[in-house]
C-alpha cells in the first residue's frame, strides 16, 4: 500500500521489475501464440496480472501513469482491431472472419506468416487487459485500496 509510514522500497522495486517482465513476456506469448502455448487470452491475463500487482503496491494512480491511457481505451482499441480483422475479408468479398495471410521471409526468423488471425489475437489481448484493468481499477478506487 502506498502509505507514507509503510514504504518498502525493495518490494516496490521488485514489483516494478516483475510488472515489466510480465508485460514483455506477455508480448512474447502473444506473438508466438499461434504456434506454441500462448495467445491473446493468456498474454492478456499475464500482462494484467503484472499490472494488478503493480497497482496493489504502488496504487492506481501510478498504474494510470504507467499505462498512459484509460483502460477503457484498451477495450475500445482491442474491439476495433478485432472488428477490423473480422471485416477485412469482406472487402475482398469473402465471408467475415476468413483468415487472410501474407507469407514473408524474415532473414533470421525464417518463413513468417502474417495474417488477420494475429490482428484478431492482438485485439483479444488488448480487450482482456482493458477489461481486467477496468474492473481492478474501479474496485480499488472505490474501496480505497491505494
Amino acid at each position: 500500500m502506498n502509505n507514507n509510514n509503510f514504504k518498502n522500497i525493495i518490494l516496490e522495486n521488485i514489483v516494478t521489475l516483475f510488472m515489466k517482465v510480465m508485460v514483455i513476456y506477455s508480448f512474447y506469448l502473444l506473438l508466438r501464440g499461434h504456434n506454441n502455448p500462448g495467445g491473446g487470452f493468456i498474454a492478456g491475463i499475464i500482462a494484467s496480472t503484472g499490472f494488478i500487482f503493480f497497482a496493489i503496491i504502488h496504487g492506481t494512480k501510478a498504474l494510470q501513469n504507467i499505462i498512459k491511457f484509460q483502460p477503457q481505451l484498451f477495450i475500445a482499441s482491442g474491439l476495433s482491431l478485432v472488428f477490423i480483422a473480422a471485416f477485412l475479408p469482406v472487402i475482398i468479398s469473402k465471408e467475415i472472419l476468413t483468415g487472410l495471410w501474407i507469407q514473408t521471409k524474415i532473414p533470421v526468423w525464417g518463413e513468417f506468416h502474417l495474417g488477420t488471425p494475429l490482428i484478431f489475437d492482438t485485439g483479444v489481448f488488448l480487450v482482456v487487459i482493458g477489461v481486467i484493468l477496468t474492473i481492478v481499477i474501479s474496485i480499488m478506487e472505490v474501496l480505497k485500496w491505494n
Binding site: F41, I45, V128, V131, I132, I135, S138, I139
Partner: peptide, 13 residues
C-alpha cells in the same frame, strides 16, 4: 474460463 472471470468480477461488484 475467461468469461467466468468476467462474470465473477461482475457478480462480486
Amino acid at each position: 474460463i475467461v468469461i467466468s472471470l468476467g462474470i465473477a468480477s461482475y457478480i462480486l461488484a
